[in-house]
Design a protein around this nucleic acid. Structure first.
Lengths: 124, 124
DNA sequence: CCGAATCCTGAATGATACTG
DNA sequence: CAGTATCATTCAGGATTCGG
């Protein structure tokens, strides 16, 4: 179960890393509202750079979580949408986000306590 | 909700990153079975380096997810244990891990399809 | 036994400019 | 509009060594 050579574990680790990266969760949640074009996504997440949005979408697409639909017109049009797999992932993700929001206070308090202990240790 | 200056969002992002880092989830799951000493953890997760285990534990401790109990004896003894907060986090994490295991096949298939498409594009 | 300090490498991120 | 290419920077992670 903890064998790093086990391909299942590698896949789980990969997914966790994707979730841990800076934009994937935000993009998935944003697409949870429905299909969006590239620049609509950019506007919905103002702090993401064009490059990182592209890379994030490519990774999500590779994992089968997001579908990419190109309409060859002028100007070009590319729509991104959660796949069924992507939709199903939003449930556990929401569980995690919900937990975070429920426990933001406790986490901040713990961090403050910890940092205070570090301060007095540094002062000694 | 997506404002990067919102402290709640920063906390959520921080938690997601912790989850995405290479060892935190593994440590939390391992400690789910009960209190363990430092080297017991190392043996339970053979691939982790001493340094990364120390850092991971410090981060988890700072967030209030893990408690660290020092028994000043010779040799020294340090026990790590999930706090109540840490215990409660295992539920959403398990949801995520469960989802991964349920969908490993679909993810692999999607990746294979994607990579194949990339290959033929590269061959053109 | 537990951990801190140091050094090093690769990957993630970001700013900027260019293209069909 | 929707990218790709390039460059610079930062940081996580790992190997090694030393200390209490």
């Amino acid at each position: 179960m903890k064998d790093p050579n086990n391909p299942v574990c590698q896949t789980i680790t990969g997914l966790l890393q994707r979730i841990g990266d800076k934009w994937s969760v935000l993009v998935v949640e944003t697409l949870g509202g429905g299909s969006l074009r590239f620049n609509e996504l950019r506007r919905a997440i103002p702090s993401v750079s064009q490059r990182m949005l592209t890379l994030t979408l490519r990774n999500l697409e590779r994992d089968g979580l997001v579908s990419r639909t190109v309409t060859p017109s002028i100007p070009p049009r590319v729509d991104y949408e959660l796949t069924e797999l992507g939709q199903s992932l939003t449930k556990p993700i929401c569980g995690l986000v919900q937990w975070s929001m429920d426990n933001v206070g406790a986490i901040h308090a713990a961090q403050a306590r910890y940092d205070e202990g570090q301060d007095e240790a540094a002062a000694a």
